[in-house]
Design a protein around this nucleic acid. Structure first.
Lengths: 219, 219
DNA sequence: TAGATTGTTAATCGATTAACAATC
DNA sequence: TAGATTGTTAATCGATTAACAATC
């Protein structure tokens, strides 16, 4: 089997995909690692290394075919097939994600949404009715759900994640403000919004301090 | 001046902060790098290295004082002061973030929200009325805004970011699906939700394939 | 004082960059 | 064929881990 791809590389794939998508939309047919390098602000060397993890996409003397590369990376990311996803938690964030579903276009189909709050049960969000949590496990089993999106407060999140795993979920998109402990064969991708905001806060803060300490130094 | 802290370290700070907060809430007074290591699934060595970037927080033979360390990291992250933030885009995501403002507790004050859509103008979200985009720049200057949260579609994002910078914003929390090009003294923290979802998709996909290729191999 | 655990230096590991031969 | 640009190996850089002397 191919050697394991490092997290560093995987982390960059969606960004490549995004840039290639834009190029494709602009009608660009081919691009060299050097041009792409200038565009994305990463080294041409890294680009070539990254692409080569998945086998040669390019052609010496020519570069890369944008459309081909775009499709290939899409396939690597699993965007060539449908995913059924459910959202756990019909609060502000859950609803925003349900509506925001620009993801739908990419094959991520919003299939169900669950909440403990009885007042919400039966209410429809983008045509899908909010269901009580008790129905979650059966729903997953019956509807062939791939991905669960966790948007509930941290207190319930760990227990709910366990239930998801029990019902056979293999991928959790976790917006809850807590780290989940799941078996090896279950993938978790965290979106810890406050962690992100704090990083921004640090960066802004640090820069300010530097400025004060050395007001002449512009870089 | 102290040597530059690497992105790798900065990226971990919010997570430390989160775990220390939980420990503090549980009434834990002190903790060694080894205990914290077990809890967070990172090496004790890394923990000690990380903390030492900011000067000795610990004490030989004792460990680290949880409360002290928590406060120290909080200060490093800039959580000991108030930040005024505005949200650009009063769509689903913008509204969710405005309401979600659990951040408020941490000193990030939701001060204003803007949208191009006239139908939304004057409407109140968490007591704050939606303003037209034209008022954005003056509002920033008059209200001492630190952070702008960009939740508009990608097409308008680049131009809007330019306006933000023009008005003096130094920190942008970018949810738009595009990379922003800003001067060196402006910090951007990206939350590219689809990139995140695609990574999850890749991970789940890859695991499945491995399973199929080598069904016996459990790890 | 003895035991524990940090702070810090040194060793290892992995990821990024540079270089260049292969090849379109 | 000459020029361009990849694929890939080698060199460099940085981040992580190990080890241990300093010290509470």
């Amino acid at each position: 089997m191919e050697k394991e791809i490092s997290q560093a590389v995987i982390g960059r794939l969606p960004r490549y995909f995004r840039f290639l998508g834009e190029l494709k939309d602009q009608g660009v047919e081919r691009i060299s690692s050097q041009e792409l390098s200038r565009l994305m602000h990463v080294t041409a060397s890294q680009i070539r290394q990254d692409f080569n993890h998945f086998g040669g996409f390019g052609q010496q003397g020519y570069g890369y075919n944008v459309e081909y590369l775009y499709t290939a990376i899409g396939r690597i990311l699993g965007l060539d097939r449908k995913h059924h996803l459910i959202i756990i938690g019909a609060g502000n964030l859950g609803q925003a994600l349900a509506n925001y579903m620009n993801f739908e276009r990419r094959g991520f189909l919003f299939t169900g949404i669950f909440d403990i709050n009885e007042a919400l049960h039966g209410r429809r969000i983008r045509g899908i009715q909010v269901r009580p949590m008790e129905e979650m496990q059966d729903f997953i089993r019956e509807n062939d759900i791939d991905i669960a999106v966790l948007t509930i407060p941290k207190d319930g999140a760990v227990a709910t994640a366990e239930k998801l795993v029990e019902a056979g979920i293999k991928a959790i998109w976790n917006f809850a403000h807590v780290d989940l402990d799941v078996p090896d064969d279950v993938q978790v991708e965290n979106v810890h919004l406050s962690d992100s905001l704090f990083r921004l806060s640090y960066m802004a803060n640090r820069y300010e301090k530097q400025k004060k300490a050395a007001p002449r130094d512009d870089r």
